[in-house]
Amino acid sequence: MTSYSSYTDIGGRPCNEDSVRIKDLGSDRVCVILADGLGGHGGGDVASKIAVDTVSSGWNANTTPAELTDLALKVHRRVLELQTPACQMKSTLAVLSVDSGRMDYAYVGDSRIYHFYNGKLIFQTKDHSASQIAVMLGQITPDQIRFHEDRSRIFRAIGQDGELSIDADEEILEPGKHAFLLCSDGFWEYVYENEMERELKAASSPEDWIAKMRKIHASRVPKDNDNNTAAAVWTEIA
């Protein structure tokens, strides 16, 4: 039994460059695609839309990490083709496929994928950002990423110069309750992991979970906050 919900919000910005799409093929086969267009390059909204459109139309269930990587690279090539000297558009990308007791994912950038098992956080993707590098070099702790100056400096993005490495993997889902959260940095910057867990326990549905987290988000954001987007998928493996 798989259920899902998503939202996207412009925040305090003139344009929403986030995009999100959930493709449902029935029989508990679901694909979530989230992309955050990078501002300052022009056309971030176009790039993120290309990302969700391309992956969505290319995804069929029973996928592998290699296939998701290929789809991500297809997005990359398309965005590169459409770039002009004045508009070097770029985007992050996070893709999650849940199907037949398995999850596959691929991502590039700092949009995150979280995995909760029976209410506990067991996995989150590592940002392709300079702050994550600082954590790995032992310069800051993971908790400090949110407030770090390099938080927004990403070293992998759809539409970057040259080749692109995609991180992708898969996991067999153990029997129990699984919850996934995909979100752009405009969301995770203001909602902490322990709060995600806490609200998950109290939530009755993916929609409810997101609504509860958005309340926390709204209580923290400044006026000019970034676009923010999240998608939640719940699935129970017997």
Binding site: G40, A130, G162
Partner: peptide, 23 residues
């Protein structure tokens, strides 16, 4: 240089500190 750093670092030749703002 905004968010995407790949414009200013030569992939493969840039040491890690060049990916950090105040590196």
């Amino acid at each position: 240089d905004g968010r995407a750093m790949t414009v200013f670092v030569k992939k493969g030749f840039a040491p890690i500190e060049q990916y950090q703002h105040n590196g």
